[in-house]
């Protein structure tokens, strides 16, 4: 599904990712753990195609295609979804209008016909309930005045709605209390699918209690320094990053 080879990424001329290699197959859930400043968010933004993240070397293949050559909207239409750490607030655009526009944009790019307002509403309602996203939230301006939990629930709702092939979750646990975390994790787990790959990016082991990964990669100073099964998270929790980062350095 996703093949990252020797990826080097610079932001404002400063190299952040320094030769990252990673491979995720369909149906797999991988986690990337790492301390602050290790390049976790740079990786997620690079995968989603944010401007200003310059690939200076290496490659990203998604379903065999060069992901780096595509604008963000094309990546989305082809099934790449980034659940953001800090979803932006956009006053003046209602959440429902946004969902409809995004969904139909993706459909159009795939050669499918638009869904009408009723069709979108039905689809959204069917998915919103499990994530405790209320009708009232859908009427409000996108993310405006939403609590941290509401924002993350809406990100998860979008993931359920767009049904991506590759879902990247950037610090989905940040700002969530334990109940909100459980709710979001359940939503994510419900989307586990043999055809879908997931990349869970997190600083803390806590999230991985709820979204149990097949494989864990430890990112430090712009490259993967350790890999292992789910038990690696427990080791990191017990001994801290310094232990492993120090070993690899």
């Amino acid at each position: 599904m996703l093949e990252i080879k020797n990826l080097h990424v610079a932001v404002d001329g400063k190299e952040i990712l320094k030769g990252l290699t990673l491979s995720i197959g369909a149906g797999e859930v991988h986690a990337i753990m790492g301390p602050n400043g290790s390049g976790k968010s740079t990786l997620s933004y690079t995968l989603a195609g944010r401007a200003g993240y310059d690939i200076t070397d290496g490659s990203i293949l998604y379903k065999g295609e060069d992901l780096a050559a595509m604008p963000p909207e094309e990546r989305a239409a082809k099934g790449v979804f980034l659940a953001m750490q800090y979803p932006v607030e956009i006053p003046g655009v209602t959440t429902m209008t946004f969902l409809k526009t995004a969904l139909n944009s993706q459909r159009r790019a795939r050669g499918q016909s638009d869904l009408d307002a009723v069709g979108v509403l039905k689809l959204v309602r069917a998915k919103a309930k499990a994530l405790n996203v209320s009708e009232e939230m859908l009427k409000r301006a996108l993310n405006v005045g939403f609590s941290g939990g509401e924002k993350k629930r809406l990100e998860t709702l979008q993931m359920a709605l767009f049904e991506p092939s590759l879902a990247i979750l950037d610090e989905t646990d940040s700002g969530l209390d334990i109940d909100a975390l459980r709710l979001v994790a359940e939503g994510v787990n419900a989307l586990r699918d043999p055809a879908r790959a997931m990349l869970v990016i997190t600083h803390y082991q806590r999230l991985l209690d709820y979204i149990v990964p097949d494989r864990i990669h430890v990112l430090a100073k712009g490259r993967i320094v350790a890999e292992g099964g789910k038990e690696l998270a427990l080791e990191l929790e017990a001994k801290g990053y310094e232990h492993i980062v120090g070993q690899a350095a």
């Binding site: 990546r75 979803p87 995004a102 979008q158």
Partner: peptide, 13 residues
């Protein structure tokens, strides 16, 4: 940032 958010959800620039 808003522009990127919308585009990352599939909305053309």
């Amino acid at each position: 940032e808003s522009l990127f958010y919308l585009r990352a959800r599939g909305i053309p620039e």
